[in-house]
Nucleic acid binder design. Structure first.
Lengths: 234, 234
DNA sequence: ATAATAAATGTAAAATATACATTCATTTTT
DNA sequence: AAAAATGAATGTATATTTTACATTTATTAT
C-alpha cells in the first residue's frame, strides 16, 4: 500500500462510531426499559435508545458511562458491552456503526428530573414502542443476553436496591426469565450459594409479616468462583 | 446542536473501524490459533491477528468474512462477533476501534498456500507469541468465550471435519476445557442429546479397531432447542 | 379476638452426574 | 496362524441435584 493510497484511506474509510445504551430497570415486579424521545433530525421525536458519538479522545466504555450519566445522572452503574451493529445502511443519514452497551440500574435511584428533561419514559419490556433504526433489535439481543447472564453471573442484583428480600429477588428472576419459579426451591437454591447475607431488618412493604432483608456478599461470591463452583440460578 | 457544530462533528468524530479475526483450529488434539506477520509499518513483521479496516460500503460481518477469505481462502465459515475494543490509545498510530470476530475453521480445509503467502502460522493456544496492540487480550477474551459457548451451543463441531468420531470430539472438548473428561460419561452425554447421527463408516487412523464416524444433525438440534432442553456438554 | 396476607419452611421422588474396569475388533508381530 | 498390542466400546452403583408439592408463622387490619 503506497503512502498515497494510505492517505486516501485515511479520508475514505473513517466513519462514525456511536454507542447506544440499553437501560434496564426493575419496578413493580416488571422488567423495564428506559427509552427516549430523539431530539435531533432526522427522526426527531421518535422513540429511541439514548446514545452518542464516541469522541476521538474518549474510551469506548467511558463514552457509555457518559451517555448514561447525561441521561440519568447516575455514575458507577453496571454496564456491559453487548454487541456492535454495523450494517452499512443501518443509519440512513451516514455510515455509522454503533456499539451497544447495556446498563442495569436501580430504578429508584435515577434522577427523575434529568430523565424528564430528556423526554424519557420507562416501558415494560414486553410493551415497547417502535424504536428508530435497529434499536428494537438491540433491545431484543440485550434481553437474550440478560436472560443468559443473569443465570450464570450475579448481575440480577444490580437491578435491586442494596438491601432486598428473597421474594423480591424471586420476582426479579421471574421477570427476567418470563416464567414462574417455585418459592421453596428458589429460596433453597439462592441461599445454598452462600452469597446472600441475612440482615436483622425486615421489609414490610410487601406483607404484614414482613420479609427479611439480605445483601449480596461479593467476597463470598469470589470464594465461590475460586472453589470452581459454577454460580447458577434457575 | 447547531448545523455548524454538527458539521464540525462530522469531521472531528469520525474514526477508523477495523475488524480483527481470531481464527481457531484444532489439530493433533491441540487447539490452535492462526497468527500472521504484519506486513505494514508500523510494527511491520510483528506477530498479529489478521484484520482490516471496515469499508464504508461494507457490512461489519461481511468485512470479517472478507478478511477470513483473503487470509485462508475459506468461505461459509463459522464466525461470530466477540467484542469491540475501543480504548482511545489502543493503536498508537491513529484513533481506531476494532471489532473482534472469532472464526472456527476445519484446519484441514484451509488453503495452505494462501496462508503461507501471508506469513501465517498455527500456534498452540497455550504457546502463543506476543502479538501487537491489544491482540493478546482479544485472544484471551475469545478463548473464554469459546469455552463458554462450546458448553452451551454446539459450536465445537465447527472445528471438526464433517464426519468425526466420538473420541475425536472428546479430545476437542478436552482441548477447549483444558481438562480431561471420562470417556464413558462423555459418550453417554453427547449421545443422549440425540444430535449425533451414527454412520456406517469407521475412521481407522486412530486405532486398529477403528472408531465409528458420526455427523452432527442440525435438524435434531433444532428439535432439542424447541423441546426446551438446554444443550450442554460437560 | 378474628380474619387476612404474604413469608417461611421440609421431604420424598425423579433426574442427572460421577466414579470406575472389562471386553471387543482389528492390525501387527512373531 | 497364534499371540500381542492398541484404542473403541460398554454398564452399573452411588452421590448429587432438581423437582414437585402443602402447612404453619408473624404481623396488621378489622
Amino acid at each position: 500500500m503506497s503512502q498515497n493510497t494510505s492517505d486516501l484511506y485515511q479520508v475514505k474509510e473513517k466513519m462514525y462510531v456511536a454507542t447506544d445504551c440499553i437501560i434496564f430497570g426493575f419496578q413493580d415486579g416488571k422488567l423495564k426499559l428506559l427509552v427516549f424521545r430523539r431530539k435531533l433530525a432526522p427522526l426527531e421525536g421518535e422513540w429511541s435508545l439514548i446514545g452518542s458519538f464516541v469522541r476521538l479522545d474518549e474510551d469506548l466504555e467511558i463514552a457509555g458511562q457518559r451517555v448514561l450519566r447525561e441521561a440519568t445522572g447516575l455514575e458507577n452503574v453496571f454496564m456491559q458491552q453487548l454487541k456492535s451493529y454495523g450494517k452499512k445502511d443501518r443509519d440512513p443519514g451516514y455510515r455509522c456503526i454503533s456499539v451497544a452497551q447495556y446498563a442495569l440500574i436501580r430504578i429508584d435511584q435515577y434522577d427523575e428530573k434529568l430523565v424528564e428533561e430528556h423526554g424519557a419514559k420507562w416501558y415494560e419490556i414486553d410493551h415497547l414502542p417502535l424504536l428508530i433504526l435497529d434499536h428494537n433489535e438491540m433491545v431484543h439481543d440485550a434481553l437474550l443476553q440478560l436472560k443468559h447472564n443473569a443465570r450464570y453471573k450475579p448481575i440480577g442484583f444490580e437491578l435491586l436496591p442494596e438491601k432486598f428480600t428473597i421474594p423480591q429477588l424471586q420476582s426479579l428472576y421471574e421477570a427476567i426469565y418470563q416464567r414462574e419459579l417455585d418459592a421453596r426451591n428458589f429460596r433453597k437454591k439462592v441461599l445454598s450459594l452462600n452469597v446472600l447475607e441475612k440482615l436483622d431488618e425486615k421489609d414490610k412493604t410487601g406483607s404484614k409479616r414482613g420479609a427479611f432483608l439480605y445483601k449480596f456478599n461479593y467476597e463470598n461470591y469470589q470464594k465461590l468462583l475460586k472453589s470452581g463452583y459454577i454460580f447458577e440460578i434457575a
